[in-house]
Amino acid sequence: MTALIIVLLIVFGIVLLLLEFLVIPGITVAAIGGVLMIVGGIYMSYDHYGSSIGHLTILATVIFGIISLFLALKSKTWNKIMLNTEVDSKVQKLDDENINIGDQGICVSRLAPMGKVKLDQKIVEARSTGSYVDEKTKVIVVGIVDKVVIVKPI
């Protein structure tokens, strides 16, 4: 029973360290817990089975840790759990010169500071002059910068 506890402490400790190195940024409870579990497992092996088994436990822990790290860093391992989606949408840019300064419209969504505005029966992406503009508020076009409509509430 003690041998099972020692093995589980070392395995869970190495798993926590791998999570810390590869998934969780910074030094967190996972790293501290992983180190404590590994040290606890090695201490228990020395305490219950003597120094020769303790030395073998350290050797086995190092070998298991290196093999685990090697398998975790292989690219095929991460390809199995990686999200494989592509973003193929584009930001809607203003078409021609259909929208002019002074045109009036209504907000289709909240401008915080970007949102949708209905101008001349067309829904376009617009940016407010800095303040939040609620939905269904009447707005006026005050500028067009890099094909982005700039509006302010009326």
Rank of each mutant, 00 (worst) to 15 (best):
D95R: 14
D134C: 00
K136W: 05
K76N: 14
G41W: 02
S75I: 09
S128R: 05
K122N: 10
V142I: 14
I81M: 14
I154D: 08
Q104F: 04
N84R: 14
V39Q: 03
V23H: 08
L9W: 00
M1E: 10
I106H: 07
P153Q: 15
M114D: 13
K74T: 15
S89T: 11
I81A: 15
G40P: 03
G54H: 04
A30I: 02
V142P: 06
V124Y: 08
D88K: 14
V15Q: 07
V23E: 10
K90W: 05
L4E: 11
L119C: 03
V29T: 11
Y132G: 04
S45L: 02
Q92V: 13
L111I: 04
F64L: 04
A31C: 08
V35L: 06
K122W: 00
S45W: 01
G13M: 07
G41V: 03
L83M: 09
H55Q: 04
G105F: 00
I42Q: 01
S51D: 11
R110I: 13
T77L: 10
L111P: 06
D95Q: 11
I10W: 03
D146L: 15
V133F: 01
C107V: 07
L119I: 15
M82W: 05
S109Q: 05
L69A: 10
L56R: 02
I6H: 04
A126Y: 04
R110E: 14
I154H: 02
S68F: 12
E20W: 00
I140R: 10
Q92Y: 12
L19V: 10
S89G: 06
A30N: 10
I42S: 04
K116P: 02
I106G: 08
Q104Y: 07
D95H: 11
A126W: 04
S68K: 14
S45R: 02
V35C: 02
T61R: 03
M1P: 08
V117P: 01
L22S: 11
N100Q: 08
G54F: 03
L56I: 06
K80E: 12
D47H: 07
A126G: 09
M1Q: 11
F70G: 13
V142R: 13
